[in-house]
Computed example of a mutant assay.
Amino acid sequence: MRSVAIYDMDKTITRKATWTPFLVHAALTRAPWRLALLPVAGIASVAYLAKVIDRAQLKQATHRLMLGRAIPPADLDAVAEAFADSVAASNMFDDARARVEADRAAGWEPVLATASHGYYARAIAARLGITQVIATEARRDADGNVLAGIEGENCYGPAKLRLIEAWLAREGLARGDVRVRFYSDHVSDAPVLEWADEAFAVNAHGPLRRLAAARGWAVLDWEG
């Protein structure tokens, strides 16, 4: 039986969320004038909080504002690699690194499953030696340029479980063929935590901490 340890990324592996810092990093690197559009991005965030737009629409709007309509993949890769270096240097829990290594040594294959865009999540995962990444994916045009639109589903909430199940299918695995550990900080990942054989609430906020207590899930508080 294959053993898979699946990790959420933002505030589970990383100390802080990564999307807005990535957008700022990308704008500074490619087109600093786009930083003047941050207030517009803030309005989009308010629209999300008011439930005028959903998370996927917010992600698409802020991508378009801060990165532009279309980005050559080589340019985006360079931005993502530099951003991943900064995350590894100052925005990653030492305990998360240690847990990934301990799981790997115990025979668990590490997988990253995140709502973050794959174009930078894969670079962050690589700093942990993780090659399997399930993430939100961007559309591309006929020339391969990365667009603001999302391809498929935003990898969040119930959609994350569907995308994990799709990954298992691509790997040729039925659910009964694999033992799964899942680590997350947020209650939005409850569908995957319920589905996993071993659930870990990591650095959990209040709602997840209460759910973990009710379900008997392990609670981990990572420092450093």
Rank of each mutant, 00 (worst) to 15 (best):
V133T: 07
D177W: 10
A115E: 09
G172C: 05
A82R: 14
G144M: 03
E153V: 02
A74P: 06
G152Y: 04
N203C: 11
H117P: 11
V178A: 12
D185K: 12
I71H: 13
A98C: 08
A204H: 03
D185Y: 12
E137H: 13
A88K: 07
Y183V: 11
A126F: 05
T62N: 15
G129L: 01
K160W: 10
L128T: 10
P110N: 05
G149W: 05
I130Y: 04
E151M: 09
L193F: 02
A96Y: 02
E153M: 13
S90Y: 13
V187Y: 13
P72H: 07
M92L: 14
N154T: 00
C155Q: 09
Q60R: 14
V133Q: 02
D103F: 01
V178N: 12
S90A: 13
E165N: 14
N203K: 06
V79L: 01
W195L: 02
L65W: 14
P191W: 08
P158D: 11
A82N: 10
L193D: 03
A201W: 02
I134M: 06
Q60L: 01
A201S: 02
G129N: 02
R69Q: 15
E194T: 08
A142W: 06
Y156K: 07
V202G: 00
L161W: 09
R64C: 05
G144K: 05
E198G: 06
L76Y: 15
A98L: 07
A159L: 08
A138H: 15
S90T: 15
R69V: 06
W108H: 05
A135H: 10
Q60D: 08
I124F: 09
A201G: 03
P158S: 13
E81A: 15
A169P: 14
Y119H: 13
D75N: 13
I124T: 08
E151T: 00
A148G: 11
T114V: 05
